[in-house]
Amino acid sequence: MHTAGVGLLDRLHKLRGQVPDDDIAGRTQALVVRGNEFAMRVARWLYRNYFRASAFGIEHVPATGRVLFVANHAGQLPFDALVICAACFLEPPTPRLVRSMVEYFVPTVPFASYLFARWGQITGTPENCRRLLAAEEAVLVFPEGARGISKSFARRYQLGEFGTGFMRLALEMRAPIVPIAVIGAEEQAPAVNIKPLARLLGAPSFPVVPYPPFVPLVPLPVKYRLYFGEPMTMTGDPDDDDDVLDEKARIVKSRIQSMIHVGLREREHVFW
């Protein structure tokens, strides 16, 4: 599937155009591209060698135009986002740079605060999402949010509550929704959440795993399987009542849930 001879930097330049190197803004942009290239190298290694990810239905990723990717969220650290971004960048004939909507907590964390932003992963405010979709970008959202990523091992593959924010934005911006089921992330860090410690640190969660170093900094080398579903075009009034939007959000949720069931049935083992 990988086009031989097309380097990562070529793929980046294809997306961003050639970068001028003569003024400060251009130099900064060049630095960002180089940073992105490094990040993509790491992501590619994780995607191909560590998680040995396979992506199904990659043809459902539109080559151009605005799109809202909606996926299930799990695994304590957002490696699921990384794997989705890597798949959309490496697998289709035309690479797509995915812009994830990041938790509000991230800009308060040293290094993650600016590195995520430089890699194109942006704080998940409705304004940011609107702006990116208007610029015909591909935006990734996890409607389960922090509750999804920090859910305990016992509740794996059970989708949490979906917010209605993503649905309002999809309707308002007339963006097609591509549902994604991620299989594997739920087992990368079998954790329980120590709530008092989380409250003490002001973090959304404090996960603990039953092996050293007891905090899930390094994910287990699970095998990732991504299922991209057919694009869904939702219609309706974005300012409708919460109940109406809730129902629409539930259609997307149940699509993802059934894709998860298929994925789990097809999988033979967690690690291969």
Binding site: F105, P107, T123, T125, E127, N128, R131
Partner: peptide, 9 residues
């Protein structure tokens, strides 16, 4: 603020 959008109107 940490939850500021990239560009405020």
């Amino acid at each position: 603020r940490p939850d500021n959008p990239q560009f405020l109107t």
